[in-house]
Design a protein around this nucleic acid. Structure first.
Lengths: 344, 344
DNA sequence: GTGAAAGCGCTAACAA
DNA sequence: TTGTTAGCGCTTTCAC
């Protein structure tokens, strides 16, 4: 301890943390001595132990850490979350999870004051580990079947009912769907109704059920609607999904459960010589910037606001009495990739 | 302590950390009791204090936290860094810095095993605070004038010499430049040679000096070359910069020190009715995806690899004897936005 | 395979 | 304004 150098440890501590508690001269002297002796200042970990504050928010994602920076929706969510963190002076800790290993160790080992959980599957070990921790938790999007945590999300079902009505209203009856992964194991291909209903990803389940309901209103029998699933969330997955769908089914519209998939589908459909929307309509979900450039018909969701709201909910030491749920609005953007189906 | 429940604290600790050190039956019993009693498992902060490992890498950026997710180059760097972190099982802590406050507290308070510093100005307080911490540090890009830290970067000067030669080789002699901020205070407008040479951002300084050298070889007097500076790094800053440049100077080429600026310049130039590259050539720097889509002539730098290398350098507990410097290669991509100047 | 003791470096009360 | 006293919760020799 630098205490050996004239003063006591309290004084040293105060020199760093409460400048107003001691004379400027003394403070200067303490700091100078510290520097001379090579004392690097209070150890942050020891301080955290004592103060019971880590000064950081943990973020848990479905995917590997680096995915956070590959998916444009995740990036926007993170920007919002970071905004909330910086307002609060909190750090943002991206918690590593090994998708393979059944090792929730990283979660247990994270020095954070709370967790934001972004879009995890039902029954996830890492998420379970988060709930074990005696810190506040905010879940974004999924899973929703959890008590005692705050939640931020949108009404995925209702948004997709709108989308189905939009397409049905244009006259589409022979439609296909392209969706994201429905289980944690890779399963690229057509997804049966049973598989859809038992999807481990609630968001996908709800988006599909929304489409189902909306199309049902127009008399479309859902069991005849082909649903193609892709494990990877990327444009090329969207392209290959569209290819698989169109190879077997003659549809006039493809509703995708994300913009990335829709953008890929759009590319494939055009490259295969079909015109959009004259021959095939394509719709997405999310409202990413690239979708705007492509004039994709989609559902805009306030991704950045979700991130900020999640951060604020977590950091807001207000009424943490009962768990709060925030449902943000979405908006159907009918743009250039949807139109009436071709005449028979 | 759960020790009151049959066994000692060592045993409890072992139950969590060294399953092989005690009988499975006992371990099970300990864990069950812990659950029943609501013991959440070892406190990560206390554990860190004892083991002297935080299990996380800290990242320090020039800008506010959320900037990390707004700038495509930063996002790619982060993806690479995250890749290295996840290979190591480390977390990634984005350290909040208040650009206004002269408070390096967040850096001092971050519980991390090391820092990656990404592109900071010379003489930055937060960076200085990082150097005070007794942990390893890797600096990416700037500042370079630091001893005892590992570094990752590119040869900005040489890359821009190439770019100047490219433009000069096409025949350009009346050129303008659009660069990023040169000081930490906002100063949008023309930058004198003196201001360029005294820029607090080494990367900008070197990119400008590279252009200067390359154009000098073709006989261009640098003091006649207008250099427009923009504080914000965005497309719209690029557009307004190009506008300001063209309003006063009749140039046949605009060399930008980033793709984002170049993309904005491109937009402005086209919107103002000029053809690219027939009337004006425009070049960027970085090689972001959007630049590829726009067919922008640019310098590609391996941004993701820089991030990964930075992470590996930091986490690699190998020869930490002397500081290592890694210079990654760049590549001039001559695409569709550069061509011969118009005939007089 | 298990327990006892020692301390990681700090800050919050309180007393002087 | 400064010093004293107690831990924060854990892991780690080392002895049993």
């Amino acid at each position: 301890m630098a205490a050996e150098l004239g003063v006591s440890r309290t004084t040293v501590s105060n020199a760093y943390n409460r400048p107003d508690q001691l004379s400027p001269a003394l403070r200067r002297r303490v700091l100078d001595t510290a520097r001379r002796l090579g004392y690097p200042g209070p150890d942050p970990v020891a301080r955290s132990l004592r103060t019971r504050k880590a000064g950081a928010v943990g973020l848990l994602l479905t995917e590997a850490l680096s995915y956070a920076f590959r998916d444009p929706v995740a990036v926007q969510f993170l920007e919002g979350l970071a905004l909330a963190c910086e307002d609060n002076g909190s750090g943002l800790l991206l918690v590593p999870v090994s998708p393979e290993a059944d090792d929730p160790g990283a979660v247990a080992r994270a020095g954070v004051d709370g967790f934001v959980v972004y879009s995890m599957p039902d029954d996830d070990d890492n998420f379970a580990a988060v709930l074990e921790r005696p810190v506040p938790v905010v879940v974004c999007d999924q899973p929703t079947a959890v008590s005692d945590v705050d939640r931020v999300g949108i009404d995925d079902h209702a948004a997709m009912v709108d989308m189905a009505r939009h397409l049905a209203g244009l006259g589409h009856r022979r439609v296909g769907v392209l969706c994201m992964r429905l289980s944690t194991e890779r399963n690229d291909g057509f997804a049966s109704v049973g598989r859809q209903e038992n999807a481990r990803y609630e968001v996908q389940r709800r988006r599909l059920s929304g489409l189902r309901e909306g199309f049902a209103e127009a008399g479309v029998d859902w069991s005849t609607v082909p649903v193609v699933e892709r494990f990877d969330h990327s444009e090329s997955a969207g392209a290959s999904g569209a290819e698989q769908l169109l190879a077997r089914h003659d549809v006039t519209a493809i509703a995708c459960t994300s913009d990335l998939l829709a953008l890929g589908a759009l590319r494939h459909v055009r490259e295969s010589g079909r015109r959009v929307p004259e021959e095939v309509s394509i719709t997405g979900f999310d409202g990413v910037p690239a979708a705007e450039r492509a004039e994709l018909t989609t559902i805009r969701q306030p991704t950045l606001d979700k991130g900020r709201a999640a951060g604020e909910l977590l950091l807001d030491r207000g009424d943490r009495q009962r768990s709060r749920t925030l449902l943000l609005p979405t908006e159907l953007l009918a743009r250039a990739t949807s139109g009436p189906p071709p005449e028979r």
